[in-house]
Amino acid sequence: MNFDMVHDVQKIYRKLLNCMARPGVVANISQESNKLNIASGLSNSLLALTFTVCDAEVSFNILGEHEESIIRKVHNLTYAQSEKTETADYIIVKFLAERGKIATAFGIAKKGTFIDPHTAATFIIEVETLGLGPSLKLTGPGIKDSVSVEISGSEAWLAARTEANAEFPLGIDVILVDLQGNIMCLPRTTHTCNLEVK
């Protein structure tokens, strides 16, 4: 069965919205995204999320291997404009992206302005696994008391994210997706606290 650009995108959007409204909640989009059969260079889950939010009205950048050719393909598929990290609306980070590059991107990406905080960038980051776990405590709007989660590889960019979100309402919203199609969101209002000492 083919990926339905109306109904599958709607289902993914509702899961995404629920995750954005309730940081720490994990939803799985693989049932919808695995219907995709497009050789874009992005995983099905990343591409499905890109279809959900990107079109000609917005710009994007991709971090990871073979960036140039994937950027071209994603532009052809969504008509979204490719821009550099400093000005892009959506920063799509592939699983194999260099960890240091992600932290740098948090430093230079758009954080919005006090007058227009909504103009900040959104990161869509692919990680190996994510779920509930003992290492990271989340608090903030959308969370009853607190929730503990596990986001693999996040230690490489969490400090940079915290710094980018230091001055609310400025900040960067993060959509996480793992290799099994699980998604979780960290809007700029979510505070993270390391529970495990490594």
């Binding site: 650009m5 954005m20 409204a21 959308g142 919203d173 809007p187 700029r188 209002t189």
Partner: peptide, 27 residues
């Protein structure tokens, strides 16, 4: 009409704004 009246581009515009609205409560 398309499902839910709108074309998909219109829905995406509203969805993007909604996600931002949730991320900046009250704004």
């Amino acid at each position: 009409y398309n499902f839910a009246f709108f074309d998909e581009g219109s829905k995406r515009e509203i969805r993007r704004a909604t996600l931002k609205a949730v991320a900046i409560p009250g704004y």
